[in-house]
Design a binder for these strands. Structure first.
Lengths: 224, 224
DNA sequence: GTCTATAGCCTGATAGAC
DNA sequence: GTCTATCAGGCTATAGAC
C-alpha cells in the first residue's frame, strides 16, 4: 500500500516537513519542549490539522525516534564502508556517527538519553537500535578474527565497554561543549586515545592472524 | 546574616521541603517537567506563595543544581575518605558517586546533561563542579605520585579521558537500566574493567615509587 | 485535509488584601 | 507569608463544517 499516487507522495512530503520542523523545535526548546502547536505554527497550519498525520504527540516522538535511529545507523554503516574491515571500519563508523551526533543534537538526546518520561519507543522504532548493536558486535568480531583485537572484545562485556566509551565521549561533548565540532571538541578529539585504550584492554592474542601488523610476531603467512 | 532565629530556621526548613518536593516532581515528570504549580500543590500551598522563597522557576533550577552538585561532591569525597590514597581512593569515590547517581537520577540528569534550554547554572552554583574536577585531578596526581599510574594521568588529557569513562558508565546505565542498582547494573558493574582500562593506558613508569605493586614488570608505554 | 470552535486542562508570574 | 484574583497566555485533543 501507499504507492506513489500523487496524493500519497504529497502526504509523505508533508510528513517529512513535519518531522524536520519538529527537530528544529526540539533544538530550540529542548527535546521535552516539543509542542504540536509550535510545529503547526511554523508549518503554517492549525494544530488540529496535524492530527491527520500523527495521532498524538507521543506518536510524533516515536517516529522521530525511529527515523533518528535509522539515520544514525545508516551514517554509522556509511562511515565503515570506506575503511578497511575490523577496527579501522569501526573507528571510521564511530567518527561518522559522532559527527552526525554533533550535527543532530536534539535527535541524539532523544536516542541516547531518556528525556521524556512516559515515552517508550515502540518495538518497531527500536529495531534499528538492535541492528546497531549487532553491527558493532560484528565489527568487533571482525577485528578479533583479523587479529586486531583479542577475542574478548566481541563478547558481551567487550561490546558493553565499547558502548560506554562511545556514549561517554558523546555525552561529555554534548553536555560540556555542544558548540564545538567533533574534530575539535575537548572530548571528541580524544577519540584516538579512546580507541587505543580499548585496544590495550583487548590486545590481539599471540598467534592470531594479524595482517595489519605482520611485523609483530614474524610469521610466514601462508598464502591461501 | 540569616542567623538561627526561629523565623529563619522555619524558613530554611520550608526551602528544604520545596527542594525535596521539586526533586520528586522531576522524578515523576522529567527534569524539564518541573512546575511550580505542582510543587505548590504537593506542599499544600498556592503557587504565588512559592515566590516568597524563589523568585522564578529558573532560580529553583539553579538552587537544585547547586545543592545537587554539592551533595555529589560530598558523597564523592566521603567515598574516598575510607580508602587508601591515590587510585583506591578515586575508585571508591567514583563508586560512591555512582550509587548516589542511581539513587538521585533526576538530579544526576540535571547535573550531567543539559535538559533545560535557557538554563545556565550561575557561577556560584557551578563552583562545586569546579571543585569536583580539582578533586579528581588531585587524586590522579596522588596516584601518579604513588606510582599507581603514569604521570600523564593527571594531565588535562588524562582527566578528560577519566571523565569520559565515568560519564559513559553513568549515562549508559541511567538510559538503559535505570532500575538496576549500581552493583548489578549492566554497565556500572563493569566499573573494575573501566578502571583497569584507564590504568593500562597510563601504566606506572619504571622507576616510580610504586609501593602498591612493587613486583610489576615493565609495561610498554601507550602508543601515541 | 483544512478549518473554526471548543473542551478542559495547564503554566509562570504579579498585584494587592489580610 | 499566606491568600484571592487575575493576566496572558500555553497546551493536547476532539467535533464537526466545508
Amino acid at each position: 500500500m501507499a504507492l506513489g499516487t500523487r496524493r500519497e507522495l504529497r502526504r509523505r512530503e508533508t510528513v517529512e516537513e513535519i518531522l524536520a520542523i519538529a527537530i528544529d523545535v526540539m533544538a530550540d526548546d529542548g527535546v521535552a519542549g516539543l509542542s504540536l502547536s509550535e510545529v503547526a505554527r511554523r508549518l503554517g497550519i492549525k494544530p488540529p490539522s496535524l492530527y491527520k498525520y500523527f495521532p498524538s504527540r507521543l506518536a510524533l516522538y516515536d517516529r522521530l525516534f525511529a527515523d533518528g535511529q535509522q539515520r544514525y545507523l545508516e551514517v554509522f554503516r556509511g562511515g565503515a564502508a570506506g575503511a578497511d574491515p575490523g577496527l579501522p571500519a569501526l573507528i571510521a563508523a564511530v567518527e561518522a556517527g559522532g559527527r552526525w551526533a554533533m550535527d543532530n543534537q536534539a535527535l541524539t538526546q532523544l536516542l541516547f538519553w531518556r528525556p521524556i518520561p512516559g515515552f517508550e519507543p515502540s518495538a518497531e522504532a527500536f529495531a534499528p537500535s538492535v541492528a546497531m548493536l549487532d553491527e558493532v558486535r560484528r565489527m568487533l568480531a571482525d577485528a578479533a578474527r583479523l587479529g586486531q583485537l583479542g577475542p574478548g572484545a566481541a563478547a558481551e562485556e567487550g561490546v558493553a565497554l565499547f558502548s560506554i566509551l562511545v556514549a561517554g565521549m558523546f555525552s561529555q561533548q554534548l553536555a560540556n561543549g555542544p558548540h564545538e565540532s567533533f574534530a575539535d571538541g575537548r572530548f571528541t578529539r580524544l577519540a584516538p586515545q579512546i580507541f587505543a585504550m580499548f585496544r590495550q584492554h583487548y590486545p590481539p592474542t599471540e598467534g592470531s592472524d594479524d595482517r595489519r601488523h605482520p611485523h609483530r610476531a614474524a610469521q610466514p603467512s601462508p598464502s591461501r
